[in-house]
């Protein structure tokens, strides 16, 4: 992870893009693994979970950023948790209002967004030190990165495990579903495969950057 900015950051495209690639919360920082593994058995669930988390992330980051000069250091964690819990409750009601079937599919993982370390991490490491606008852009990027990661797991698992994508059948009727993919182990397999791909791409990029000698191999 790039070093955390302790001074106020200027708004650049990188503020947004970092969350998608360089500091992707799932593929690089390996945060928030619980929903990543648990609710990505279908694309719809993954998308809903990603958007719900993004909403909570953006709203709570904004509020933390807004109140950053007003929250004493000693009570900051308690304040962040209360703020995050508020937005999780709002999302909880909102999803129930949108679709009860989706609510049943996501189960306890909506309430568990409150314990998602991506959000608390953003509040502590970024929003509490940055201006409103950069916080908004950065948390949107992080949310997008999280959603993207969930989607990439969800689509693979749904295609292999069910032969469908967004509920639309992709294969002839006698397609053999890989049942393991929609079971919990499938989450681990697919996450492992994506991490392999991401690390391979990153290593290749770093090799190219350091030239063919490659003495300064990956430090991480």
């Amino acid at each position: 992870m790039a070093e955390l900015p302790n001074t106020e950051e200027r708004l650049t495209p990188d503020t947004f893009l970092r969350g998608l690639w360089e500091e992707n919360p799932v593929f690089v920082m390996l945060l928030g693994m619980c929903p990543v593994l648990a609710v990505t058995s279908t694309t719809v669930n993954a998308l809903a979970m990603g958007l719900a988390t993004t909403f909570v992330l953006v709203c709570s980051s904004l509020l933390v950023s807004l109140l950053r000069n007003w929250i004493p250091k000693q009570v900051r964690i308690a304040s962040y948790i209360v703020i995050i819990a508020t937005f999780v409750t709002i999302v909880d009601y909102a999803i129930q209002a949108i679709s009860l079937e989706l609510y049943a599919a996501l189960g306890a993982f909506i309430q568990l967004i409150v314990a998602n370390c991506v959000i608390l991490g953003r509040a502590e490491a970024y929003a509490s030190k940055q201006k409103l606008m950069t916080t908004l852009v950065n948390s949107l990027g992080m949310g997008a990165g999280f959603t993207l990661a969930l989607l990439s797991l969800g689509t693979v698992r749904e295609i292999l495990g069910n032969g469908t994508i967004l509920g639309i059948s992709l294969f002839p009727a006698d397609f053999q579903p890989w049942i393991v993919m929609i079971l919990p182990p499938g989450g681990f397999f697919v996450l492992g495969a994506w991490l392999l791909l991401f690390n391979w791409l990153r290593l290749r990029k770093e090799r190219k950057a350091t030239g063919p000698i490659g003495v300064t191999a990956d430090a991480r």
């Binding site: 509020l63 109140l67 007003w70 929250i71 004493p72 000693q74 009570v75 308690a78 304040s79 209360v82 703020i83 819990a85 508020t86 937005f87 409750t89 709002i90 009601y93 909102a94 129930q96 209002a97 679709s99 009860l100």
Partner: peptide, 30 residues
């Protein structure tokens, strides 16, 4: 500290109550 926690709790309570009121009939209908 009291001011901050109290203030945040109030904002929080207000938001949750508003959303609850708004979504209650929709959820019941669902």
């Amino acid at each position: 500290m009291l001011r901050t926690l109290g203030g945040i709790a109030m904002i929080s309570g207000l938001l949750v109550a508003l959303v609850y009121q708004f979504t209650l009939p929709i959820i019941a209908e669902n």
